[in-house]
Amino acid sequence: MSIHIAAKKGEIAETVLLPGDPVRAKWIAETFLDHPVCYTKIRGMLGYTGSYKGKPVSVQGTGMGIPSALIYCHELIKDYGVKNLIRVGSAGSYQKDIKIRDIVIAMAASSTSNINNIRFLNSDYAPTADFDLFMKAVQYSRDNNIPVKAGNVLSSDQFYEDDPDSYKQWAEFGVLCVEMETAGLYTIAAKYNVKALSVLTISDSLVTKEKTSSEERESTFTKMVEIALGTL
Rank of each mutant, 00 (worst) to 15 (best):
I3A: 03
H4W: 04
A6C: 09
A7H: 01
G10M: 07
G10C: 09
I12A: 10
I12D: 07
I12N: 05
A13I: 02
A13W: 00
V16A: 05
R24W: 05
E30C: 00
H35T: 09
Y39R: 11
G44V: 07
G47D: 10
G50T: 03
K53D: 05
K53N: 12
G54Q: 12
G63S: 02
G65Y: 00
P67F: 01
A69D: 02
A69N: 06
L70V: 07
I71T: 04
Y72F: 15
H74Y: 15
K78F: 08
G81D: 07
R87D: 02
R87E: 01
A91D: 05
Y94F: 15
Y94E: 06
Y94N: 14
Y94I: 04
I98E: 12
I98G: 14
I105F: 06
A106R: 02
A109T: 01
S113R: 03
N122C: 10
N122T: 03
Y125S: 09
A126E: 07
A129R: 03
D132Q: 12
F134M: 12
K136H: 08
A137H: 08
V138I: 13
Q139I: 03
S141A: 15
R142L: 13
N144D: 04
I146S: 09
P147N: 15
K149Y: 13
A150H: 11
G151F: 02
D157E: 12
Q158R: 13
P164T: 08
D165E: 14
D165T: 13
S166C: 13
Q169D: 15
Q169C: 10
Q169I: 15
F173H: 15
G174L: 09
G174Y: 06
L176N: 08
E179K: 08
M180Y: 08
I188D: 01
A189H: 04
K195H: 11
A196H: 03
L197E: 11
T201F: 04
I202P: 01
S203K: 04
S203R: 11
L206M: 10
V207G: 09
K209G: 03
K211C: 12
E218M: 13
S219P: 00
S219T: 09
S219Y: 02
K223V: 01
V225W: 00
V225F: 01
I227Y: 00
I227Q: 01
L229G: 00
G230C: 04
